[in-house]
Amino acid sequence: MTWLKLVEGYMPMQMISELVICILVFSIINYSLKRAGMGLPKFWAGIFVWAFVNVFYLKYRIYPPIPFSVRAIYGTVSACGIFMWVSGSQQEWEEFKRPIINVLDAKTGMTKFIRTALLILLPIGLWGFAYNSFLPNFDEPIELRTVHPAPPATTKVHGKTYVLQTASNPYRINPEGKYDQAYSNAHIVDQSMGRLMKDVNSAEENPWDPNAKGYIKHVREGGEIFFQNCHFCHGDNLNGRGLWAFAFNPIPANFTDAGTIAQLQETFVFWRVSKGGIGLPGEAFPWASVMPPWEQHLTVDEIWKVVMFEYWHTGYYPRTWE
């Protein structure tokens, strides 16, 4: 159902809002039908809601496709929710159970037929399920990838040891030349689409201003390094969709996603960039990264600058603890 767009930046809330609207519409319809004496039996209402959310909405409405493991979690939780709803009171529970009991009792021709059909179909279904599970499967196995492994306490780059817990970006400085996270936070671009179109006039805000100096000048220098080295994979918009990105699986990290650099300390990113995929620690199974160890191509200063550019461009702030 891709004709109804999920709006970038609002997708999570859009999803919840859509579900709320769907459930409200369903409640109103059901209420109206009840008033007219044609209310949907609780049993079918429960099945309908579950099927709508899991079979229709999560599978066909949300794109890109949600992996099965997540849909299985959602399916189980929503089934629990529906059980809680239909058995919330004794009266509702009796109402929900009635069609099941009727079929089991089989007092009418129709229920007899359904019971007989179920007796035949259920074993066949189970047999089919078992048969299917025994078929040889040539899919690649599931990988429980550790995307953000714990960093080491220290890392050595170009002969100098950095303590990741306490090190800081030497270029994240205020006009006085002192490390100042708040200053740089105040000078990142706004988080929105078309962020680079923002009208920035002053040399303090605009990295392309010839008079830019200090922090913002270093951002530009980081940008130059990024576009000379990184954008081929990480993309012009830093969203992991560069020219070469789709040659890899997984594609390179999407820095605009709230779950990547926004969750990390700047020193973590510094360590990852310096050491690349080959420097991933043991716990980073299955070490699915082809990023080169950039310490072999860039100086320490260049790495710090490019890291700073990534934060500036995406509008995210590096994680700090204080």
């Binding site: 997708m11 999803m15 890109p64 949600i66 992996p67 999407n254 996603d257 779950g259 990547t260």
Partner: peptide, 10 residues
């Protein structure tokens, strides 16, 4: 999915 993070559920 096109990447490690799902754009909606991520």
């Amino acid at each position: 999915m096109g990447g490690q993070q799902h754009p909606v559920l991520g």
